[in-house]
Amino acid sequence: MVKTIKEITIALNEAHQYEEWMQDIEQDERAGVQKVWKQWNNRMEKEKKKLAEHESKVKFDMSFLSSYEQLLAGIDEAGRGPLAGPVVTAAVILPRNCEKFIGINDSKQLPKKAREEFANIIKEHALAYSIHFQDAKVIDELNIYEATKQSMKKSIENLRICPDFCIVDAMKLPVDIPQSSIIKGDAKSLSIAAASILAKNARDEFMEQLHEKYPVYGFDQNAGYGTKQHLEALEEFGYIEEHRKSFEPIKSMVGAKERVLL
């Protein structure tokens, strides 16, 4: 029985693997049928690639553990570069069965909606997770590198389960737990990628709330980074408490203000 293009489209949308009935679709010469058939194959290729990347990240994480019973924590940060707002760090311990996490990637590679959805999935299914905010005042007191390091340390210490090993995105931490610093870890490790999503999502939410209080700086769009609009707002309205006084151009603005007061 010949099916309509609409019926074939619905059937393909519901299919997640090649099945015998698809042989008829392959031989169907209608342009509309071949179009949806090509779309289905492209979707399957993307899913295949996504699964392969997921399995590679899981294998990478497992390589740091000596037994199946051991637990691994991934740690990452968001917001080292902005002119305003906190640096946010996260630590996460994922379960062995990670099917729910297929598609998790470096937070910078995911659209905002996907980050939000994955953040909820991670919070629901992780064995443990912790998020820490290091505010602008501490960043100015310590410097951004040290402030990030101390925040990551607190993220680990706040986990309700102590991991057997930690992998950290490009940072060596002052903790007694065995660890490894991974360059571009959020692209290699599922655990670090999950931590990057938690940190980025939490920071975005904070900056959106800050935007409600100080809309002139456009924090909901620039997340505190030095965009043209943000720099123009700084020039016109000056800096606020949440701006990092050790970062330029705020540092020079603070210095100029102090010289006037003298």
Score class of each variant (00 low, 15 high):
residue 3 K to E: 07
residue 4 T to G: 15
residue 6 K to S: 14
residue 7 E to H: 07
residue 7 E to W: 03
residue 8 I to F: 13
residue 10 I to F: 03
residue 18 Y to V: 14
residue 20 E to C: 00
residue 20 E to S: 10
residue 21 W to R: 11
residue 21 W to T: 07
residue 23 Q to L: 12
residue 23 Q to E: 13
residue 25 I to A: 05
residue 28 D to Y: 11
residue 30 R to V: 06
residue 31 A to I: 11
residue 32 G to T: 07
residue 32 G to P: 03
residue 33 V to I: 13
residue 36 V to W: 01
residue 39 Q to I: 11
residue 39 Q to D: 13
residue 40 W to I: 06
residue 41 N to R: 14
residue 45 E to H: 09
residue 45 E to R: 14
residue 45 E to F: 02
residue 47 E to M: 15
residue 51 L to K: 15
residue 59 K to F: 06
residue 62 M to G: 00
residue 65 L to Y: 05
residue 66 S to Y: 04
residue 67 S to D: 14
residue 68 Y to K: 15
residue 68 Y to W: 08
residue 68 Y to V: 12
residue 68 Y to I: 12
residue 68 Y to T: 12
residue 69 E to I: 03
residue 69 E to Y: 07
residue 73 A to C: 14
residue 74 G to D: 04
residue 76 D to V: 10
residue 77 E to N: 08
residue 77 E to W: 07
residue 79 G to D: 02
residue 80 R to N: 11
residue 82 P to W: 04
residue 84 A to E: 02
residue 86 P to I: 06
residue 87 V to P: 02
residue 90 A to S: 14
residue 91 A to I: 11
residue 95 P to K: 09
residue 95 P to R: 09
residue 97 N to S: 13
residue 102 I to D: 01
residue 104 I to A: 08
residue 106 D to T: 10
residue 106 D to G: 08
residue 106 D to W: 05
residue 110 L to Q: 04
residue 111 P to F: 05
residue 111 P to L: 08
residue 114 A to D: 11
residue 116 E to F: 13
residue 116 E to I: 12
residue 116 E to V: 11
residue 117 E to R: 12
residue 121 I to A: 05
residue 123 K to H: 07
residue 127 L to N: 04
residue 131 I to C: 09
residue 132 H to A: 04
residue 135 D to W: 09
residue 135 D to L: 10
residue 137 K to S: 12
residue 140 D to E: 12
residue 145 Y to L: 15
residue 146 E to I: 13
residue 149 K to S: 07
residue 150 Q to H: 11
residue 150 Q to N: 11
residue 151 S to P: 01
residue 154 K to R: 14
residue 156 I to T: 07
residue 156 I to L: 15
residue 160 R to P: 00
residue 160 R to T: 15
residue 162 C to G: 02
residue 163 P to G: 09
residue 165 F to N: 04
residue 166 C to P: 03
residue 166 C to V: 15
residue 170 A to G: 02
residue 170 A to V: 06
residue 171 M to S: 10
residue 175 V to M: 10
residue 177 I to G: 09
residue 178 P to W: 01
residue 179 Q to F: 08
residue 181 S to P: 10
residue 181 S to A: 15
residue 182 I to M: 08
residue 183 I to P: 00
residue 183 I to A: 11
residue 185 G to Y: 03
residue 185 G to M: 05
residue 186 D to S: 07
residue 197 I to W: 02
residue 199 A to G: 01
residue 199 A to C: 08
residue 200 K to R: 14
residue 200 K to S: 08
residue 201 N to C: 09
residue 201 N to K: 07
residue 202 A to F: 04
residue 205 E to P: 00
residue 210 L to F: 11
residue 210 L to T: 02
residue 212 E to M: 11
residue 214 Y to A: 10
residue 216 V to W: 00
residue 217 Y to R: 02
residue 219 F to S: 00
residue 219 F to Q: 00
residue 222 N to H: 12
residue 223 A to V: 14
residue 225 Y to K: 05
residue 226 G to K: 04
residue 227 T to V: 10
residue 228 K to A: 15
residue 230 H to W: 01
residue 231 L to H: 03
residue 232 E to S: 15
residue 235 E to G: 14
residue 239 Y to P: 00
residue 242 E to W: 01
residue 244 R to Y: 06
residue 244 R to G: 05
residue 253 M to R: 08
residue 253 M to P: 01
residue 254 V to A: 05
residue 254 V to W: 06
residue 255 G to C: 07
residue 256 A to H: 06
residue 256 A to T: 10
residue 259 R to K: 15
residue 260 V to N: 10
residue 262 L to N: 14
